[in-house]
Design a protein around this nucleic acid. Structure first.
Lengths: 145, 145
DNA sequence: TGATTATGCATAGGTCGCTATGCAAGTGGA
DNA sequence: TCCACTTGCATAGCGACCTATGCATAATCA
């Protein structure tokens, strides 16, 4: 039983905490017509930049087809627009629509609120420890690839 | 920029660490014909127990339709079998097939290996801190619902 | 008993992640 | 120049998550 009870193990808690957190953010972003997955795109394009699909996939750390489909949905929903890349006939450059640009500030507030909520039960030293520890874990996992 | 650079924020690192970790486990479980999402079911049924869909959804902390579809796939792939619930004409009781029962040990080894990998870059005190902190976070998020 | 409510499950439809694959456009070397 | 290789994107198909909805069986209560 104890060997199979994962409820106290970091590997279990990590996934559970992440999912709980993401659900809350998702719920709030939905009211803006956005979702968690849009955030890396908003961040990359919030200054009016235009980027290719491949570049966006890289910053979002997803595979290209994942980004392709998401951009297609975002375009369908008028969150982004694309223009042909003048320097490369294969690619398009994506940018945020005006209405999306107008939402960026609200989205940021939602994320900040979520961040505060996440850290609310922690002391200052726990907050620092969490950052350090997760940083080490991410670095280690990246290294294993 | 710094305001929008999330790369050092726990909220970002949490999701990233979780995804990296799950990808590694997924990759290994795949070789057994299993996946991450199966694990709560394996755990619940590993002693030969039989449980209803609703009960399995509860232990896995997913919604009922999510569990319904996963059990359907697992049944299709002969990972589980179902029998009508003699005590309730609406429900079925699911149990692991023999071949799945035989995989449980290997699955556990994979999870243990993943758990060690996750903690590898941490000191003993960091390990303890992570458990404590994630526990607080999960408890807090649960409370917010 | 009969009507209402609650419960267990199935299904539809949507997002988002992945792998595998293929095409079209760009690039480099012979 | 032409062929091979690389790169950007599209598409197909699957898993796993969600909400909304509907149906059939239980359970409850007037």
């Amino acid at each position: 039983m104890s060997k199979w009870d994962p409820s106290g193990h970091p590997a279990y808690l990590l996934g559970r905490a992440a999912r709980l957190f993401e659900r809350r953010a998702h719920e709030r972003l939905k009211k803006l017509g956005l979702s968690n997955a849009h955030i890396p795109v908003l961040r990359a394009l919030r200054d009016g930049n235009a980027m290719s699909q491949t570049a966006l996939a890289a910053v979002a750390r997803t595979e290209q087809p994942t980004m392709a489909q998401m951009l297609a949905r975002m375009e369908r929903d008028k969150l982004v627009q694309r223009v042909p890349n003048p320097a490369d006939g294969r690619s398009s450059l994506y940018s945020l629509t005006k209405s999306t640009l107008a939402k960026v500030g609200d989205a940021q507030k939602i994320l900040e609120k979520g961040g505060l909520e996440l850290l609310a039960p922690l002391s200052a030293s726990e907050h620092a420890a969490l950052t350090t520890i997760l940083g080490k874990i991410v670095a280690h996992m990246d290294e294993l690839d």
